[in-house]
Simulated assay, not measured.
Amino acid sequence: MGGLTTDPAFLDTTYVVIDFESATPRGYPAQPIEVAVRALRYENRAWITAGRFHSLIRPPAFAPVTSATVPPGVTADEVRAAPEPPEAMGALDRRFTADRRYLLVAQHAATEANLIHQQRDHCPALARIDLLDTIPLAKHLLPGLPAYNLDTLLRHFAILYPADRHRATADVDVTTDVFTRLITLADESARITDLAALLKIAGRTATLNQPEHHGLFDL
């Protein structure tokens, strides 16, 4: 194996695969209606699941719940009875502790990053965690694929397509499968030797961690 999975920084990190399902009401940004996470650690040359979280989320009044906006297999009544964003996102935020290093892992991480940033008042710890995007990582390790969406990567790796695809927990699980296979590829090829190199290829800085850009004439 290569140096990536023996790198102390890599081993010291908890990788939190995250997925939101959302609805986009007219005139407003996307609103989360479901979230799932799966926390992973690499120990003794194997991936272990260190924790899970899932919640439906009741959107605000300006994003009315209809049968067309709920995730497949969920009723509008279930979403209306779900916790509101402060409760749901706050419960997730409390799963993170100050004494651990985390990276969020997502397929097309910009989507998750934007939703988290919009909810930052309810999840300040989560909103400070940087991200790793499986798409640029797959492009680096698997050049020449016809596309790099999740379905294409599932077919490439022969990962079973879940019956409840487009539910947050199912998508987290298959994204986990893609992520761990990509790490194995990186490790076996020795093309990515440590966490810093991995982040240079596929990292995304959380919006709250980015430097502020002041206007030219700010005083």
Rank of each mutant, 00 (worst) to 15 (best):
residue 155 R to Q: 09
residue 213 H to E: 07
residue 157 F to Q: 02
residue 111 T to A: 10
residue 109 A to S: 03
residue 18 I to H: 06
residue 50 A to R: 12
residue 153 L to S: 05
residue 55 S to Y: 10
residue 35 V to L: 13
residue 59 P to R: 05
residue 213 H to L: 11
residue 93 D to K: 04
residue 55 S to A: 10
residue 125 A to T: 08
residue 27 G to W: 01
residue 172 V to L: 07
residue 73 G to V: 05
residue 46 A to I: 06
residue 72 P to C: 01
residue 194 D to Q: 12
residue 61 A to Q: 03
residue 77 D to N: 14
residue 39 A to E: 08
residue 136 P to N: 08
residue 99 D to K: 12
residue 159 I to E: 00
residue 77 D to H: 14
residue 55 S to L: 09
residue 155 R to E: 07
residue 174 V to R: 07
residue 218 D to G: 04
residue 12 D to Q: 13
residue 196 A to E: 06
residue 206 A to R: 12
residue 218 D to R: 15
residue 100 R to V: 02
residue 141 L to F: 14
residue 119 Q to W: 00
residue 97 T to G: 01
residue 117 H to C: 01
residue 203 G to R: 12
residue 17 V to Y: 07
residue 132 L to W: 02
residue 74 V to I: 14
residue 174 V to H: 04
residue 120 R to Y: 00
residue 20 F to N: 13
residue 98 A to R: 14
residue 95 R to T: 02
residue 125 A to V: 06
residue 7 D to F: 01
residue 55 S to E: 05
residue 5 T to W: 10
residue 111 T to N: 10
residue 120 R to H: 00
residue 139 K to V: 09
residue 176 T to Y: 04
residue 158 A to H: 12
residue 106 A to N: 01
residue 188 E to D: 15
residue 95 R to F: 00
residue 43 E to V: 12
residue 109 A to Q: 01
residue 162 P to M: 03
residue 137 L to T: 15
residue 56 L to H: 13
residue 83 P to T: 09
residue 110 A to K: 10
residue 73 G to A: 03
residue 17 V to L: 04
residue 163 A to D: 04
residue 3 G to D: 07
residue 138 A to K: 14
residue 207 T to F: 08
residue 18 I to V: 13
residue 114 N to S: 14
residue 124 P to H: 02
residue 121 D to P: 03
residue 113 A to I: 08
residue 13 T to D: 02
residue 65 V to Q: 05
residue 105 V to C: 01
residue 89 M to Y: 03
residue 4 L to N: 15
residue 147 A to R: 15
residue 210 Q to R: 15
residue 144 G to D: 05
residue 106 A to S: 06
residue 111 T to R: 12
residue 156 H to C: 02
residue 9 A to Y: 06
residue 134 T to R: 11
residue 35 V to T: 11
residue 180 T to L: 10
residue 218 D to E: 12
residue 208 L to W: 02
residue 62 F to T: 01
residue 62 F to P: 02
residue 200 K to R: 15
residue 69 T to D: 04
residue 146 P to A: 04
residue 179 F to P: 15
residue 103 L to I: 02
residue 157 F to G: 00
residue 130 D to V: 06
residue 71 P to W: 06
residue 42 Y to Q: 11
residue 36 A to W: 11
residue 76 A to W: 13
residue 191 R to P: 12
residue 1 M to F: 07
residue 167 R to P: 09
residue 182 L to Q: 12
residue 174 V to S: 02
residue 213 H to I: 11
residue 5 T to P: 14
residue 131 L to S: 00
residue 8 P to N: 06
residue 95 R to Y: 00
residue 23 A to Q: 14
residue 112 E to A: 07
residue 98 A to Y: 09
residue 178 V to D: 04
residue 147 A to H: 13
residue 79 V to T: 11
residue 69 T to L: 03
residue 134 T to V: 04
residue 199 L to C: 12
residue 190 A to Q: 12
residue 68 A to I: 05
residue 215 G to Y: 10
residue 109 A to M: 01
residue 149 N to T: 14
residue 147 A to I: 13
residue 96 F to T: 03
residue 36 A to F: 10
residue 83 P to D: 04
residue 14 T to P: 03
residue 59 P to Q: 03
